[in-house]
């Protein structure tokens, strides 16, 4: 995902002669941009608070800014600068956070950010994206930079499995896999789209009508699309590589509360301790992997 986005960023630099890219001693995303536009590429060193403040200062002069870095340090260490200096005044700053969720696996809890999407979504006027593969990642970065105001894109540190076709038309309402009305609706975003799609295939083989709503933009939350997709379903399952209380599960619950009734399952990351494991192992531990989604889907049929 990082290689693809680095190319997109370089293209945006060609198209937007005012675009400035900042990083904090983590240049992988910015290297291709910097090679073509060295004067508009700035490395501030390992200083995320200053990074976000400098981004705000540049953006206040009218230039769009892209900030690249590791998600945990951008959304936690620089949270106040992001909230007060960037989001408050609605500046055109796009933050590319690599390794949100638990993507950094065995590097440990300091390098995990299971709260990044919700934390940024809580800041005023932000758009938040959680792409699943290179195709929607490219779209998300272009949409984030091309729109007005602050945006955050969670990116994976490795090349994720392809889950989308290259020619799909991404948009703020996400993409539907399967047909409506479905007995079970699964709502997923980012790295849980792959296990959601795999579980849906397995469930269909067992005769269950399942639809998967694949979200790329998770904030503003596409409430109307979720409500429409849930219409007629008897069970809604959400699965996210994110804190369950502040992510797409919570937003789905808020959306459906009072207008839909049925069974629900909200799969996500809780607050308990986790083992030392790579991302896949942590998905198993937190029960956001294919098996867990299949369990949640099939429960409605009483077959598990």
């Amino acid at each position: 995902m990082r290689t693809a986005v680095a190319g997109t960023l370089a293209e945006l630099g060609d198209e937007r002669p005012d675009l400035v890219v900042l990083c904090a001693d983590a240049r992988a995303l910015a290297l291709r941009f910097a090679a073509r536009h060295p004067e508009r590429s700035i490395d501030v060193g390992i200083a995320e608070a200053n990074l976000m403040g400098v981004a705000a200062g540049i953006a206040r002069t009218g230039r769009p800014v892209v900030v690249c870095g590791m998600a945990p340090f951008l959304v936690r260490r620089a949270a106040e600068q992001l909230r007060v200096d960037v989001a408050g005044p609605g500046l055109d700053v796009t933050v590319l956070g690599v390794g949100g969720g638990v993507a950094y696996g065995t590097l440990g809890a300091s390098h995990h950010a299971p709260e990044d999407l919700g934390a940024v979504a809580a800041m005023p006027g932000t758009r938040v994206y959680s792409p699943a593969d290179v195709h929607d990642a490219r779209w998300a970065v272009r949409d984030a930079v091309g729109g007005a105001g602050p945006a955050y894109v969670r990116l994976g540190p490795r090349e994720n499995h392809l889950v989308h076709a290259g020619d799909e038309r991404f948009g703020p309402d996400g993409l539907l896999d399967g047909t409506l009305p479905a007995d079970v609706l699964v709502v997923a975003a980012g790295a849980t789209v792959a296990p959601a799609l795999a579980a849906a295939r397995a469930a269909r083989e067992r005769g269950v009508a399942v639809a998967v709503l694949r979200l790329v933009q998770v904030w503003p939350f596409p409430a109307a699309a979720v409500r429409a997709a849930a219409h007629g379903a008897t069970r809604v399952v959400t699965v996210e590589e994110h804190d369950t209380g502040s992510g797409i599960g919570a937003q789905t619950a808020l959306t459906l509360c009072g207008s839909w009734s049925g069974e629900t399952a909200f799969l996500g990351i809780g607050h308990g301790p986790a083992p030392v494991a790579e991302q896949e192992g942590l998905f198993r531990h937190h029960r956001i992997d294919e098996a867990a989604v299949l369990d949640a889907v099939m429960l409605e049929r009483g077959s598990m």
Binding site: V20, I42, A49, N50, M52, G53, V54, A55, A56, G57, I58, A59, R60, T61, R63, Q81, D85
Partner: peptide, 11 residues
């Protein structure tokens, strides 16, 4: 100071 530094960079 960070914001002002960013403005100085842009100018």
């Amino acid at each position: 100071l960070s914001i002002a530094a960013g403005m100085a960079e842009a100018f």
